[in-house]
Amino acid sequence: MTNVLAINQVGYKHNFKTILHDVDLTLETGKIIGLLGENGAGKTTLMRLITGSAKGSGTIAVCGDTSTAHHKSHVSFTEQLRGFAASTRVDRVADFYRTVYPDFDGARFEEMVTFLQIDTSLKLAALSKGMKEKVIIALTLARQVNLYLLDEPFSGIDSMSRKRIISSILKWKPADATMVISDHYVSEIAPILDEVVIVKDQTVYAHKESDAIREEFGLSIEDYYESLYTETEGGADRD
């Protein structure tokens, strides 16, 4: 099994509005993937479809398993800590994870708590934006799974926190697991990405190896991404 994810002809509508259509995407094991697209392009929806918390048309196989009910055991995705009361302490959230997920590794969580300098006695309501993202990273990566999804972990946080988060991804992502990181601003994470997937026009518009973009076009990932967005509708092909 070399593919961790195989999405075939997936579509999703909300209130008769098409959010995603004709999505095909295959991801190999052991990669770090940048999921890029404007705000509202459908990045979070795609993550929800992968975990099975949203239902659309088409098929999604995680580790070869197309039953979405099984996806949660292969995929680690912490969506904005929704579902926890603002007065919940961080260590209580970790206790909850420990109880719900048999693959939650408490020792790994403690290592990341130390590295990211998280005070686990704080209540969720007391966390700064950067600290909240660090808690999400630690909770997500403490699980031992095949696929990790991080939804815009860098939006609105300071550069020191960003560097720490990037280091913890490089330190703790298991070698054979794949991680998908969504962002609408790519330059800060470009050096750590194996591949980029660009969501545009309600579908997966492009999927390329990062170093291939640099080698073939002589472009930075950011310039390549922007060039796709500034193409006129049905515009000229880029060679």
Partner: peptide, 17 residues
């Protein structure tokens, strides 16, 4: 390899290559 990746802030696969 992983230490180099962390030190340089790059992907493990890229260091491997």
């Amino acid at each position: 390899v992983r230490q180099l990746a962390v030190d340089l802030t790059v992907n493990v696969n890229t260091v491997q290559r």
